[in-house]
Design a protein around this nucleic acid. Structure first.
Lengths: 141, 141
DNA sequence: GCAAACTCATTTGCGTACAAACAATAATCA
DNA sequence: TGATTATTGTTTGTACGCAAATGAGTTTGC
């Protein structure tokens, strides 16, 4: 009997590497369905519509973006005309963000595409596998 | 009987969003174990040691990075003293990259940490779940 | 009532990631 | 051979993503 080599590290089998590639594939599918918004921008838009008026940092927390990141994303969404902002009268540190009419219109129009992106991303799996995968993926959060 | 609303799009349940958060958690674990190299840099280093002397673009393909990205990664690895480069005598376009002694030393020293990162990332799952998850994740590549 | 601790938004710096364009070189095939 | 096509490496521009630092404002504890 020989000791199995304990060393062998195969990059292509590491979770992180595979996850990165799966994510790359997903980003490609996203861009194909929604070319005018990045996944991050769409996430912020969707959450903003979900939550209604919110502060910038709170929106960041809801979308898993830190303060520096959400600022850039919100700036770009504002430049595209989707977000109205005003200072919070009750807390002078806060910047209140609100989805405007254009935001709702875009959101409603894009939800079917967003569903299609999820469907396409998971397409290599059977329905049963998709459910299992999502369940396990959630646990890795 | 009422029609179930077909609209409801819950951001937090979309593959892309959950995958992004799982990846964020993984990046945090990576940085905790290997603070001096990013996951991408380690991937390039590991692949370079796996492959031996390779051209820059070929290394990029092997690590799923496009030409622009691998250039930056290789530049940083070179700045850290891990990569020797020379022009390919057989193809004047090519830049041949080779892991040097420092690269091998770092790679050998970091493989245990890299295994620990994979282990920690998958820790919320049982052994059986880990196998299933990796199998399904591979299919989404 | 006040100082310490915290929160909010912002900035800077670094590191992926990709698109698009470019010049130089190689390969193909008419 | 000579023209077309492809590949290699590079640069520029845009967009996350986080760390760390800052200044302004708020909360807490004593």
């Amino acid at each position: 009997m020989t000791d199995a080599p304990t060393k062998d590290y195969v990059l292509d089998d590491q979770v992180g590497f595979v996850m990165r590639r799966a994510n790359q594939r997903h980003l490609g599918l996203f861009a194909a369905h929604i070319p005018d918004l990045t996944p991050t921008q769409f996430a912020a838009l969707a959450k903003l519509c979900e939550l209604g008026e919110t502060s910038q940092n709170a929106l960041g927390r809801a979308t898993a973006m830190d303060a520096a990141t959400i600022k850039g994303v919100v700036d770009r969404l504002r430049r595209k005309g989707f977000v109205d902002q005003r200072p919070d009268p009750d807390d002078q540190r806060r910047l209140l963000l609100k989805p405007n009419a254009a935001a709702w219109e875009a959101y409603d129009a894009l939800v079917p595409a967003a569903h299609a992106i999820t469907r396409d991303t998971l397409a290599p799996l059977t329905d049963g596998e998709q459910a299992i995968f999502l369940m396990l993926l959630h646990k890795l959060t």
